[in-house]
Design a protein around this nucleic acid. Structure first.
Lengths: 168, 168
DNA sequence: CGATAGTTTCAATAACTATTGAAAGCTTAG
DNA sequence: CTAAGCTTTCAATAGTTATTGAAACTATCG
């Protein structure tokens, strides 16, 4: 397979995978392109390679920076801004976990906490089923919360190493 | 908080969380309602409680069954079909991981494998960066694949227990 | 075998989300 | 200061995905 073809396929695969995870396709494609490009790219480079508009490029670059996956780079002598992605996939994964945890798991935990105490007779089957389910979900999300914190702080070798040892 | 209100909030929270993960809102809401309901519900019950159409209900119930999260239940003397959700959240989570792994991670691994060998000079910076990134992603997804398999097979206490011991 | 209760399908439509592109806003160099 | 180069915003529009509802289908009962 030729490089250009392989690049295109990677960008497109990454983009469609992202949509299945509630992530904007363009955002994933920009990220994919930056991941496989050794040097920083300008907004115009991204627009051209991916055939996207200025506004779209701008918005999604900003989002990627906000997620901590891409950095702005200044190249001396150039007026334009350039962009560079973190290449260490383990760091990328941890960063994504960290952000999604903050944006989703933590708010969910707050809601569940409020739902834990409903008024009503505890002997009523409906009330009982509700509080029980919410309680179990809370237990689960609470454990997930702690474990993800550890994972976020973890060093690659330590984490996979321990997990693999634990598995055997 | 009153039960009815709490139920409604849980259903709506679960539904909007789902959309952030590429899961259909109605599917998540039906699942949420079945999770907090002790007895099996009919399609008509679901349609009424969630104010959704027959077609929508039918389609998403089928999808939930397909994901292994909901079971069809026959109640003697009743002509209708009833539906019941698995209440053990740990089992639910494992089932979701199992399905997403099968539907997404495994196909991704196949694509990455093909992308691994591109033609061209290995000393070329572009070729080098590409093969290196793809290689790293493969290493990562390969490890994730194995670890998820273990997690899927794992028993709750064993898994969290070991993870917590490992963390400390 | 109808008649009836229940289920499934699917084309039309609605709702939602992403994308464009032109205009406004900055920033820097001269 | 102001013109040129570059970035950001946002209302309009396109594209995508979800939902409806009526018709077709299937199973069950007397």
């Amino acid at each position: 397979m030729k490089l250009a073809e392989a690049k295109a396929q990677f960008i497109q695969t990454w983009g469609s995978l992202a949509t299945q995870w509630g992530i904007n396709k363009t955002m994933a494609q920009i990220h994919a392109l930056l991941l496989i490009t050794p040097n920083p790219l300008s907004q115009d480079d991204l627009m051209e390679e991916l055939s996207i508009s200025r506004g779209n490029a701008n918005m999604n670059i900003r989002e990627l920076i906000d997620w901590g996956l891409v950095d702005r780079v200044i190249i001396p002598g150039e007026r334009k801004e350039f962009f560079l992605a973190e290449k260490d996939i383990w760091k990328v994964a941890r960063q994504i976990v960290k952000e999604r945890k903050k944006r989703e798991l933590e708010p969910l935990n707050k809601v569940l906490e409020q739902l834990q105490d409903v008024e009503g007779d505890k002997r009523n089957a409906e009330v009982k089923a509700f509080t029980e389910t919410i309680g179990n979900i809370r237990k689960f999300t609470g454990q997930a919360d702690k474990s993800l914190d550890t994972l976020i702080r973890a060093d690659e070798n330590w984490f996979w190493g321990s997990l693999i040892k634990m598995i055997k």
